[in-house]
């Protein structure tokens, strides 16, 4: 049993480590991007899938992290300091903004986070003298972890791989921790959690701040990856793309968002090389996923897997009692 638990991750890590041997330079670059996006999308997946907080402004934290590296990087060139600063500043901004709107839920939360993200976008867009405005700015900081500057694509790839694996592992621990279980409980049933003695706002605030921090961390990596940042990184369209990656991968899982990120980044790079109509294709994917792909590709893959392996088929979950209410309560939030 124990061996089984470790087999899949080990295999996965092995593949990640060996991948550069078979990939082209472009492939290595693309995979690096996938891994960075995966960290970002996992951070969003954490609040959506485990806390039930659907944000449409999460790119703001990613973009903030990226800009911290770009802006602070012109003054001090220490990779550790910059990355930590990016995560901490994003986390603080998430915390403070969360203080204000964590008591909203559902569609209200979504609208408020969207507006907040657009505000940060507008600030970076308008502050031309500092941020270069719409043109964005180049990232001058060099990537150096103390043993020489990392300049090769492969070197960067390994750095991002480690960052991804560590992020994944930490999230894994988080969701199984008492705090993570509490967060999950809040998503399931807020009124019961309150009756049990949980202060649900604290939990939401903590998970939201952590999520913002992780998004900022991903943004910082992206700044090093792309060596250029622009306000688009904070735009709600980007938040929306991250949201669909979560959905495509499957809400409520940790791997799902990462897979969704991979699926999208690769698809985008593939399709963009053929046509300019990527936004439209992405829109169609959105609609199709919503109408036909409930549960995301991970779910579809699982269904196929279960079909192939009938003995693992899970007992159908038939609630004995009819669910209370007609669904509107949960929707009204």
């Amino acid at each position: 049993m124990r061996a089984n638990i470790w087999r899949t991750p080990t295999l996965f890590i092995a593949i990640l480590l060996l991948l550069p041997l078979i990939l082209t330079n472009y492939g290595v670059k693309l995979t690096s991007e996938v891994l960075i996006m995966a960290i970002f999308v996992m951070s969003l997946g954490l609040i959506i899938g485990f806390a039930g907080l659907v944000s449409l402004g999460h790119a703001a934290f990613f973009g903030l992290g990226a800009y911290v590296v770009a802006l602070l990087g012109t003054h001090l060139d220490n990779t550790y300091v910059l990355i930590i600063a990016a995560a901490v500043i994003s986390g603080i901004v998430a915390f403070v903004s969360g203080l204000l709107f964590i008591r909203s839920s559902g569609a209200y939360f979504l609208m408020i986070t969207l507006a907040f993200g657009q505000m940060l976008f507008a600030i970076f867009y308008k502050m031309e003298s500092v941020t270069g405005g719409a043109d964005g700015m180049a990232v001058s900081a060099s990537l150096n972890l103390g043993f020489g500057a990392i300049e090769s694509r492969v070197g960067f790839y390994y750095l991002v791989t480690i960052a991804f694996l560590v992020s994944y592992y930490l999230l894994r621990v988080f969701i199984s921790s008492p705090l993570g279980k509490g967060v999950r409980g809040i998503k399931e049933n807020e009124s019961r959690m309150t009756a049990l003695g949980y202060n649900i706002r604290h939990y939401k605030l903590i998970v939201y701040s952590l999520s913002g921090m992780l998004a900022g961390f991903a943004g910082a990596l992206y700044a090093y990856f792309n060596q250029y940042v622009s306000p688009d990184l904070l735009h709600w369209m980007f938040s929306g793309q991250a949201l669909i990656m979560v959905i495509v991968g499957g809400v409520g899982t940790l791997v799902g968002p990462a897979i969704g990120a991979g699926f999208f980044v690769i698809l985008q790079s593939y399709i963009s090389s053929y046509t300019d109509r990527w936004p439209m294709i992405m829109g169609v994917i959105f609609v199709a996923i919503v109408l036909y792909g409930r549960g995301g590709i991970l779910q579809i893959a699982m269904l196929l897997w279960n079909k192939l392996r009938p003995k693992r088929h899970k007992e159908e979950e038939t609630p004995i009692l009819p669910k209370e209410g007609n669904g509107f309560e949960s929707v009204k939030g």
Binding site: V173, S176, P178, L179, K181, I206
Partner: peptide, 22 residues
């Protein structure tokens, strides 16, 4: 898991997040 949540509610470790609940 339901009971875990209920038991943890007032414990000092309810905010811990670096160790699995188990």
């Amino acid at each position: 898991e339901n009971i875990h949540l209920a038991v943890t509610a007032c414990k000092p470790y309810r905010f811990h997040f670096l160790k699995p609940a188990s």
